[in-house]
Amino acid sequence: MSTAVTAGVGTPRPPAMSDVAQLAGVSHQTVSRVLNDHPSVRAETRERVLDAIATLGYRRNSAARALVTRRSGTIGVVTTGSVLYGPTSTLVALEEAARDAGYFVSVATISVFDAATMHRALEHFMGQGVEGIAIIAPQVEVTEAVASFDAPVPVVMITSSAQPAGSTIRTVTVEQTDGARQATRHLAEAGHREIVHLAGPQDWFDARDRLAGWRAECAELGVRTPEHIEGDWTAERGYAVGVRLAREGAPSAVFAANDQLALGLLRAFWEAGLRVPHDVAVVGFDDVAGSAYFIPPLTTVRQDFAALGRLAIDVLSDALAGSDLVRPAIPATLVVRASSVAAPEG
């Protein structure tokens, strides 16, 4: 509970840093050091200041702090506004990681992916004095629009696309190709010699990488590689493909580019009387919330979005500190469930 502070003739005002200092019996500078997590403050002093902050309900005046430090403490984030699981989870993870690191986040959502629109969004951030920019760029159009912008602050793109030599834009990503290879290897090791891939839209870098991983692993293991099936990211498309596969003769295994496609496949195979995984095994990608409760529970590839958000903020923090450490991609993890492994009979 906060304590009211009186200014002048009984006029209440928000508590100031000086009020915290007076209550805690320390200097204004000591309160500032505590707020900035300075290591030179003794533990008992820090505790006393934090107690005073809690008692008064003090909140740091970010605008005043920005005037003094000439730093906004703000990260700009550009997103496409996609409601798909991957981009949405990435945005949430990025905001949480930024907040944990002491940054505010300003979000710009764009729906037209051309250079002019991207430049307007980035110039908007420059007007806010952001310290760095993160761009969730899963699609080819977004990356191409960013490439021509020469930002005066560090920029990190969350994408699996490679940047051209000499580019100052940093990238962070999850190991999409390796995740697809893990899924394909799992099916091959289960004895499947024909693994069909239901791909995502090929203007998405993640979909391209998953397709490439499936092809590479099949080639390395000597598994026959039929032509992949073009898809989008929807359960509706997965269902339509599943109906066709069941009618024409389903393969023994399908690796779907995301869990929604896999969900549609499961429904179509169930309607056709095909048992999963006995007649056809299914593996997805993303490990969406609820995938463990599909019928049967879905084997899938998990992406650690929380780690991805932290990595993006770490890369921006490194750049702001004048460091340019090369950070490895976040590993993807195969989660094996009943859609690809039959329970023992008898």
Score class of each variant (00 low, 15 high):
L245C: 03
D318V: 06
A115S: 15
S27L: 10
T143W: 00
L325M: 08
G249F: 12
E271V: 06
F255G: 00
G10L: 06
Q29W: 00
A7W: 09
A4E: 14
P152I: 11
Q163S: 09
G10A: 07
E194A: 01
H278D: 14
F205E: 08
D203P: 01
L94M: 09
I135T: 10
W270E: 15
E345T: 15
V78R: 07
W270G: 15
S317P: 05
A268L: 11
F305L: 12
A268H: 09
H124S: 14
D203G: 01
R120Y: 02
R70A: 14
T299I: 06
G290Q: 10
A145I: 07
P251S: 13
S148Q: 07
D37F: 05
G346H: 01
D209A: 14
D206E: 14
L263P: 01
A199D: 14
I195C: 11
L35D: 04
V276A: 04
T300L: 06
A329D: 13
S167P: 09
A338H: 13
R65D: 07
D324Y: 14
R42K: 14
Q260W: 11
A52H: 09
L266S: 08
H119R: 15
R59D: 03
G200Q: 12
E44C: 02
Q139R: 13
P164R: 02
V282P: 00
R13S: 09
R208I: 10
A257E: 06
V254C: 06
D232P: 03
A343Y: 05
R302P: 00
W214G: 02
E194W: 02
V130Y: 03
P297E: 07
V142H: 07
S161M: 13
M157Y: 00
T184A: 09
V301R: 05
F305R: 05
I195T: 10
S27I: 10
F205H: 14
N258L: 09
V341N: 00
V301E: 06
A188S: 08
F113C: 03
A7Y: 11
V288E: 09
L308V: 04
M1I: 10
R193C: 02
A63F: 12
I75T: 10
F104D: 12
L265F: 03
L320Q: 14
L266P: 04
G290R: 12
S167G: 10
A137W: 04
I135G: 08
A253V: 02
Y85L: 08
V336R: 15
A253Q: 02
T168P: 00
P251E: 13
V243D: 06
G86D: 07
T79F: 04
L211Y: 09
A190M: 12
V49T: 09
D37L: 08
E236R: 11
Q303N: 03
V241M: 07
P296T: 08
A312D: 04
V142E: 12
P152V: 12
F255P: 01
S160M: 04
I195H: 09
P39I: 13
G25D: 05
T173Y: 12
D287G: 02
A216T: 12
V105W: 06
L274W: 04
T90V: 14
A21V: 01
V31M: 06
F125W: 04
G213Q: 11
I295P: 03
A321R: 13
T225S: 15
G127A: 06
D37C: 03
V280P: 01
L50A: 11
A115T: 14
T117E: 15
D259G: 11
L23G: 02
R70S: 14
V241F: 07
P39Q: 13
E220A: 14
Q139T: 07
T333E: 15
P164M: 04
V9M: 11
